[in-house]
Structure formats: C-alpha cells, structure tokens
Amino acid sequence: MYNMKPLIIAGREFNSRLFLGTGKFSSNALMQESIVASGCEMVTVAMKRIELDDKEDDMLNHIISPNIQLLPNTSGVRDAREAVFAAQMAREAFGTNWLKLEIHPDPRYLLPDSVETLKATEQLVKLGFVVLPYCQADPTLCKRLEEAGAATVMPLGAPIGSNQGLRTRDFLSIIIEQSNVPVVVDAGIGAPSHAAEAMEMGADACLVNTAIAVASNPVEMAIAFKEAVIAGRRAFEAGLGEQSIDFTAQASSPLTSFLG
C-alpha cells in the first residue's frame, strides 16, 4: 500500500497535513467533533484575559489529547515586544513551547507586519520556542524567517477569514520551491478545492479555520477538507502532468487509420 510521506516539524511527525483553528465554532462540542472528523493532529488556540465572573465551558476539555499538538497563537499583539510577552504567557499556560506567531496590527485586513514578525521570530527562537510564523506570501521574507530559525513558514493565501482562496498563488509557488522548512498555507482557504490546490502545488500542509467553523455542517466540511488535503498531496507526490503553454490539444488516443 502506498503511504504518503509524513510531515515532520521540529522533530514531531504528523500523519495529517491539515491543521485546524478553533475559532468561530457555534459550540465547543461541534468544534471537538469537527477536530476528530478532520483527523488533524495540530490545532491552534488563542489566549484571553480572564474575567472573574466568566462561567463559560472550559474549551480545553474538548481538545486536549495526546495525539494533538496545541499551537497557541499570539493574536491580539501589535509588535514583537508584545509577541514575546504573549509567547512566554502561552508557554506557561499551556506547557508547550510551540507557537503560532501572528502580528497583525491592522484590524481591517489583519495582514501580518513583516518587520515585527521577523524581529519576533529571531528573539523567540533564541528563547527556545518552536516558531511557526503567519506571514505575507513574500519569498524573500520566508527565506529570512527560515534563516532566523522558524520551524515552518505560514504564508497567507488571502486575508484571514476571507475564504478567497489562493490569491497569492504565484508567490506561494516560489516560496514552496525555495523553502527548506515546511510551508503551511494559512489563511484565506475557503473551500476544499483551495486546500487541494495548495497541496498539489507542493505545500506541506494547510491551516483551515473559518471555512470549516462557519459551514452549515462543520463536521462534514472537516471531512471534505481532510479528503481534499489527502487528494492534493497524493497528486503532488504522484507527479502531475505538465500543462500545455497554450490550448493546443495533445491527443490521448491514437488518431490514425481507424476507419481505413
């Protein structure tokens, strides 16, 4: 039987190349069911300040499992200094040094600040964090993040939650071609076909949240994404045929002498 290559990040092996975000689900139970259905082995979580009269269900009970790597994010920070503080808080709270670094001070497009992201990556790697930075689909930046010791790069397909797909397609291709660390396409993936396309291009994994969480049936959508990521990866490993440079047909059947 053919087995897909496992993905290795910072020495940890992942059999699933789909990572899930935990935001926007209508309930923790539905989130948990979707995580299980997706087969994913890494989920992102956020942090918030406690409120003493907060009686909400503790989401931890719904996601803690030995098969699942928690990936705390730094959402809400505005610069590298705040990101380092948030990372240290996350490490204490969740007992993991893995971190989704995200610094997006602009509330309209939530686009990551490249200068602060690179600065924070350099500092956090020195502090012993496994840093997975959410970043612009900028090939030069991705190389700089790799040199700074990032465990992956996570370029965006389109703005967070936009479901717009791989608007940065051509730059993602260059990033994938050049990268020596896994490339995780994060943000903007709105349909299983977008995820399959990223995987066919050779991305190492996809991180999906909104498209699953806000679907009419998130559990079914989680399964659809799981299958799309597998299909796309299989196609990449199997080696896709080359595209013609124009619309000229390339016969797939013999054209000669059938009817004499």
């Binding site: 975000g21 942090m47 918030k48 300040r49 989401m59 994010n73 808080m89």
Partner: peptide
C-alpha cells in the same frame, strides 16, 4: 513561572495579568 507562584509575594497595588485559553485560529 508556576514553580515560582508560591515564592512570589503580592503587595498593595500589585498589577497582575492573568490569561487563559480561548478559541482562535
């Protein structure tokens, strides 16, 4: 760090930040 909670005294007007896990992408 948790290991230092016991030995870290509070004093009048101390400022604390306490965070917990939340859902997020």
């Amino acid at each position: 760090p948790k290991a230092e909670w016991e030995s870290t005294p509070l004093s009048e007007e101390s400022h604390l930040v306490i965070i917990r896990m939340a859902c997020g992408g």
